[in-house]
Every structure is written in C-alpha cells, then in structure tokens.
Simulated assay, not measured.
Amino acid sequence: MGSQSYLTVLIICLVAIIGSSHGQLQLGYYGKSCPKAEEIVLKYVHQHIPNAPSLAAALIRLHFHDCFVRGCDASVLVNSTQTNQAEKVAIPNLTLRGFDFIDTIKSLIEAECPGVVSCADILSLSARDSVHAIGGPYWNVPTGRRDGTISKSADVFISLPAPFNNLTTLLTLFGNVGLDANDLVLLSGAHTIGVSHCPAISNRLYNFTGKGDQDPDLDSEYATSLKTFKCKNINDQTTIIEMDPGSRNTFDLGYFKQVVKRRGLFESDAALLKSSTTRSIVAQHLQSNEKFFTEFAKSMEKMGRINVKIGTEGEIRKHCAFVN
C-alpha cells in the first residue's frame, strides 16, 4: 500500500514538472485572463506599421536579439541602472529600435488587464504581426512567457550571433539555443527587410585582413558601388544601407538572390555559401516564396520558444523597461 502511494505521488510530481515546463506556453494562453490582449497588439500594429513599415524589420530584430540572450524573456527591453549595464547598451544593441512601440502596447494592455501579460509575449506577438502586416509570413505565437529579471550587457557578446561571424561560429551559437543549420539560413532570410549602417561592413570594404584590402567573398562590382555611393570612407558611421536593395520593406526572396550573387551585406550572409549544407538550403528557398514563408514560420515559432520562462519563473513586469 505504501509503495503504491509513493508511486502515485511520484507520478503526480512528474506530471506537474512536465506541465510547468511545457504546458503553460500555448496558443490563446490569455483567453480567460486577458481575452483582448492579442487583439490589442494586432490593432496597434495595423494602425502604425503601414505608415512606418521599416518598424517591422526593427521589431523582428528586437525579438531575435532578445531570444538569443537569456531566452525570449524581454531582457533586451530593460534599462540600465546605476549598478548594472543592461543588454540595451551593449554595442550590438545600440542600433535596436522599437522600444517605444512595445512600451505603448504594454501600457494599452496594462489598462485593460494589469499585471497579466508579459513584455516577452508582447514583443513576440508584435514581431509576428508587424511582419505579416507588410505582406510577410504568419506564424503561430504560443504565449505564456514570463519576463526575466536579469539583463547584462556582457551576456550579449557571449550569446548573440554577429554580422562578422563565420559559419562555424554561427552554427555553434545557433546550436547553443537548440537551432540548426536550416534555422540559420531561414532566420537569416529576415534580412530581406530592413537596413544596416556602414560600420557593419566597413572592414569588408576597406580593411578586411588589416592590410587595406577588400573581402574577396564580396562581389567586387557591388563593393565598388558601396564605396562609391554609400560608405565612401572607412570612418562613415551614419550612412544607411539596404539589406535587400530596392525592396527593404518587402518580405520576399530578394535576400537569397543577393546571397547567391555574393552580395549579402554581412560576412554572416556570405558564410551561408561556405558549406554544401547551407548552400543547398539557400538554393531550396530560392525556388518558392510560399515554401520560404512556410519554413520561415516554423523557425520563428521555434526561436520564440528559446529558454522561455514560465510558471513561477521570472515575473510580469509592470513596465517593460524596468524590473518590478
């Protein structure tokens, strides 16, 4: 009798553990606690993204930078304090945008149901809805994430993939968070929207190996064009460059077309041609916009689950920029 009781308790405990790990991230998580939450996000996105389509790229980038550092817990949204330098101020994050956008949605949702919806979920939903609003793919966003209470700038340099990373490093950093080569190629496809700045590529143009040379993996005609019309010297800090020239606000196959022409802006873009595996994946997604959208959606949902905090972990922040 005693052993049976022990077994029953053990099973109940295991079920509880499994439930706390997986059961709380689900579609429609706020259906009862804040039924209008997702509608509020969607409405705000549809009000503003058509007038500022470049924000779609900013929000998906914000989501990416969040998830790779401590998981999708909105730690990237936290402000620094006198005693802590937060992720926001790390050099790779200084060009992030969209913080005010997320803060405004948070305030609207707080007015509807205080202390219920996490900033992490708001960011995840906003990234999806904004990309879809400009004609990009739609993906499922199961909710139930909670907000992290730790945000450290030093973590960014350890965990976040960088535009100058080679393929080995990229695969390692993606593998560290449960993503694979397919996810690397697909998520890189988000570079079909948005812009960068000259400092991100100046070394490729002017001083690739420290000898005043140019990156041989960058198409020479494209490099000449960039030096003539965009980044006219290595010290240019402000000029904007389209990631996918001519269609920076259109979610399409343009990025992959640029990559195969050796016109991907970053070293990390060029890296996708460095192995037969990733090269093959790029080629696959050149064939069909529909297939790219479908597979991109799967990778985005997968990314949105990275090291999420659920149950009693973390907190629900009252304001996205401050830990409670």
Rank of each mutant, 00 (worst) to 15 (best):
K257D: 08
F229V: 02
A223P: 06
S220R: 13
Y222C: 01
T224Q: 12
S247R: 11
P245S: 03
L226V: 03
S247Y: 01
G254Q: 04
G246T: 03
F251M: 09
P245D: 10
T224Y: 12
Q237V: 09
I234W: 07
I240F: 08
T239R: 06
T228R: 14
E242Q: 15
D244C: 11
F251W: 03
S247A: 12
L253M: 02
K227N: 06
S247K: 12
K257Y: 09
L253H: 02
I241Q: 04
G246W: 08
F229I: 08
E242D: 13
L253C: 05
T239G: 00
T238K: 11
L226A: 03
L226M: 03
Y255A: 01
Y255N: 05
G254K: 01
G254A: 05
N233P: 01
D252K: 06
E242C: 05
A223D: 07
N235I: 10
D236M: 10
T228W: 02
Q258W: 09
K227T: 11
K257A: 10
M243C: 13
Q237P: 03
L226K: 04
L253K: 02
N249K: 00
Q258M: 12
I234M: 11
Q258N: 14
I234H: 07
F256A: 01
N233M: 01
Y222R: 06
K227Y: 07
S220C: 08
T250G: 03
L253F: 06
K230V: 11
Y255I: 04
F256Y: 15
T239I: 03
K227C: 06
I240L: 13
T228N: 14
Y222E: 06
F251R: 01
G246K: 02
I241V: 15
M243F: 11
Q258Y: 09
D252E: 06
N235W: 12
F251L: 02
N249T: 12
G246D: 01
Q237M: 10
P245R: 08
S220Y: 09
P245E: 07
I240R: 12
F251Q: 03
N249E: 11
K232P: 08
D244G: 00
T228M: 11
I234C: 05
T250F: 02
A223G: 14
K257G: 11
D236P: 06
T250C: 01
D244L: 00
S225V: 09
N235K: 14
M243T: 13
I234S: 13
G246F: 07
S225N: 15
E221I: 13
D244M: 07
E242P: 02
V259I: 10
C231G: 09
R248V: 09
I241M: 08
I240P: 00
K257N: 14
Y255M: 00
I234V: 13
M243H: 14
F251P: 00
N233W: 07
C231D: 09
S220M: 12
D252N: 15
Q237N: 13
M243V: 06
I241S: 00
K230S: 14
E221Y: 14
F256L: 05
Q258H: 10
K230C: 08
C231F: 11
Y222V: 02
Y222S: 04
S247C: 05
V259Y: 00
Q237C: 04
E242L: 08
C231L: 10
K257M: 09
Q258K: 09
K230E: 10
